[in-house]
Amino acid sequence: MDERQDGRNVKIATLGQIGLQQFAPYLMNRIMGRYNATLRQGLRNHDLTVPQVRALAVLAVGDGMSINELSVYTVIEQSTMSRTLDAMETQGLVRREACQDDSRTRNIYLTDKGREEFNRVWPAMHEAFSEMFTDVDEAEYATFIATLQKILGNIRKHDF
Rank of each mutant, 00 (worst) to 15 (best):
L152S: 02
L70I: 13
D102L: 08
L148C: 02
C99R: 13
G64H: 06
T147K: 07
T147Y: 12
T80N: 11
R83S: 00
V50Y: 00
F160I: 05
V72S: 02
D101A: 13
G114W: 03
R95M: 12
L48V: 08
E89V: 06
Q78N: 14
V75Y: 14
L70A: 12
S82W: 06
N36H: 08
E138R: 05
L56M: 04
R8T: 13
R4D: 06
F133Q: 06
E69I: 03
T14N: 00
Q100D: 14
A142G: 01
F144L: 12
D159C: 07
N9A: 15
R95Q: 06
T134H: 11
E116V: 05
E69V: 07
A13W: 09
F133E: 03
E97R: 11
N29C: 13
T38W: 13
A142V: 07
D112Y: 03
L93R: 01
T80F: 10
D6T: 06
K113W: 04
E127Q: 08
M88Q: 03
L110Y: 05
N107A: 05
D2S: 09
M125L: 15
D135Y: 12
L152P: 01
M125W: 13
A98R: 07
M132Q: 01
V58Q: 10
A142P: 01
D135A: 15
V121E: 05
I76S: 15
G153R: 06
G92K: 04
G153Y: 00
N119E: 03
L27D: 02
A24G: 07
V94H: 06
V121K: 00
